[in-house]
Nucleic acid binder design. Structure first.
Lengths: 343, 343
DNA sequence: GTTAGCACTCACTTGAGGAGAGTGCTAATA
DNA sequence: TATTAGCACTCTCCTCAAGTGAGTGCTAAC
């Protein structure tokens, strides 16, 4: 489906205008405002063509035109000119990221804040997922009265902890020994490499505590596959400024959706393309956001995907801006994390 | 300010009715629906009195009456009959809490979910704050290339972690030694007891690593006073069902508020009474929720406050129900945590 | 002290009319 | 042949007036 230059120009202008005003765009306004050099009548003819091709829609007979999802898609793929962030915005990101952070969760939170602030849409950040990563360290800590805490440190600096019951006759020294033996065997290994052979070796060294070790291995397994990816959501109130969310019903649906962490994780993990993904309206797999667009990207350490960020807004979205914000922040986030956990 | 029996009856009926219908209550309906045994005219007279006393308000001259904040306060203090949770609801709580949980954050999350589900308002839970608590364990874990992670385990099972730079010549064994020495000295002590004497002793034993130890002590201090209380928010979409939130502006204000974690923490920590606190409308310190009511309570371990839960809804709230939900869940939460960390 | 009756108030609904923005079609023009 | 001016038509939205209904306050009777 290839469009001639004038059609492109007109489609571009319509989308541009609609994004800015949220009002159906008429031929007269368009011709005047965008200096198209042709009369409204000509524009009308072109618009009728574009509508027939599926790029535009008409809310009702005597209204202007509105871009269809299809139209937005064409815009994003062919018409939109990428915008760079303003110097002041870059500066803001730089300042936010350069102050010394001590925990991964802080970085995540700041990214989310920046994301929503710069894009003025809702932001979502999934914190590094522990899956498919290396074990760094485990540690048993006695918590008194027959209980212990198992600390599991995974490679990009993720810490998980689990409580466990202890057999009555165990001493703190025992815990320390077990920690050391298990550490010696497993630390640095990929979760998937935690094969039976290693486990057997541990059993062999810790015969006395066989059942305890089994429990520990289970808990390690459990924490490494933990779905408890923390999600940062922010700036939801931002999108309430958009006229498409003037309807409380819609807001309710959206909020209900956003509260379902697993669902959000799922949506964010299904990114087909490398780099920035744009899902427009019905391209979203989830019904509740069929009239939203989502711009998402993965961030990585050493080229390995460890989490995602996304921006959610109405289909009538400032695509160019949102895309560059997501792009810029993902790059920066990857960089900051790499610096934190260079290895 | 004492009311005769009939006035009490009428005030009670008005509030009851308004809570149920969200419509201003008229004399006719009231007299009929609640079998007051007097004519609408009499009810009107009483209503006029109650209005003069400040318990009722009139949206406009020819409308029915609506309870004022003052009226709700009287209702909560004197008129409301406490409701007990239904067996099925208790069962739900029991089931949710009895399945084995491995982390404190799971319990928090479930509590929040139950809170919003049972009350059908928005729920907030502040996770255990590390402040004023005992140190259980610290552990240094090498993260490669001159970096280490400091794990700090605090008494009720809170885990914090911090990244730190290491001097280049340090070995893993050094880290282990330092961990052990510091642990031996400080574990079990209250944060406030971490006086200079102890720190001097540690310095004495670890002369070679003096500056590193100083950094560690700082980070321990930092994590114990960490404001990073995690907040669980849930069921916000619930309150969008209430007619008072049909206005998108209000929703926006509320969402904006709820995203400010520190603010929420602040609001939740200012509970004057032991047990369940009820803040009605303008009794709330924060302007943005001047037309909401908040029911909150602290949960504890060993009688010590370690966090709070709250329910937020319109002033036209099912107080009796909400109060009993908060009460029941706080008690259960305290119990579960005590069981998890019995000491 | 209670009640019936009555005039009055005020929000909300309904429907008609008009304004305005925009369209599609046709015929004239370059 | 492509473009444009002109025009009738469509449809939403705003406004305004009239009518409806729930509720009130006051007064006089019980």
């Amino acid at each position: 489906m290839t469009l001639d230059e004038r059609k492109k120009r007109i489609l571009w202008a319509i989308i541009q205008d609609f994004i800015a005003t949220a009002e159906p765009v008429g031929s007269r306004t368009l011709a005047r405002k965008y200096n198209l050099g042709v009369s409204p009548a000509t524009v009308r003819n072109e618009m009728a063509d574009l509508e027939e091709m599926g790029f535009l829609e008409q809310p009702h007979t005597s209204a202007g035109r509105v871009p269809s999802h299809h139209g937005y898609r064409y815009y994003v793929d062919h018409l939109m000119q990428p915008t760079e962030l303003a110097e002041s915005e870059k500066e803001l990101v730089r300042v936010s990221f350069e102050t010394k952070v001590k925990m991964i969760s802080e970085v995540i939170q700041r990214t989310g804040q920046l994301l929503s602030q710069l894009s003025s849409y809702a932001a979502m950040v999934v914190s590094p997922c522990a899956n498919r990563t290396r074990l760094r360290h485990i540690q048993l800590v006695s918590m008194g009265r027959g209980q212990a805490m198992l600390l599991v440190v995974l490679e990009p600096g993720i810490v998980q902890h689990r409580m466990m019951e202890l057999p009555p006759d165990l001493t703190s020294a025992d815990l320390e020994t077990i920690s050391q033996v298990v550490n010696a065997k497993i630390s640095g290994s990929q979760m998937s490499e935690l094969k039976l052979t290693i486990i057997r070796e541990i059993y062999a060294e810790l015969l006395r505590h066989k059942s305890l070790v089994a429990m520990i291995m289970d808990l390690i397994e459990d924490s490494s596959r933990s779905k408890e990816d923390r999600i940062y959501l922010g700036g939801i109130f931002n999108i309430l400024n958009e006229p498409e969310f003037n309807n409380v019903e819609k807001v309710k649906t959206l909020l209900g959706l956003l509260e379902q962490e697993e669902l959000i994780c799922g949506i964010l993990s299904e990114q087909d393309q490398p780099g920035v993904n744009v899902r427009i309206g019905s391209e979203n797999s989830c019904d509740d956001i069929k009239d939203c667009s989502m711009i998402s990207a993965n961030y990585e350490i050493d080229g390995q995907r460890i989490g995602s960020v996304a921006v959610l807004g109405p289909t009538r979205m400032q695509y160019a801006k949102a895309i560059s914000v997501v792009e810029y922040l993902t790059a920066n986030l990857s960089e900051v994390l790499a610096k934190m956990y260079r290895s």
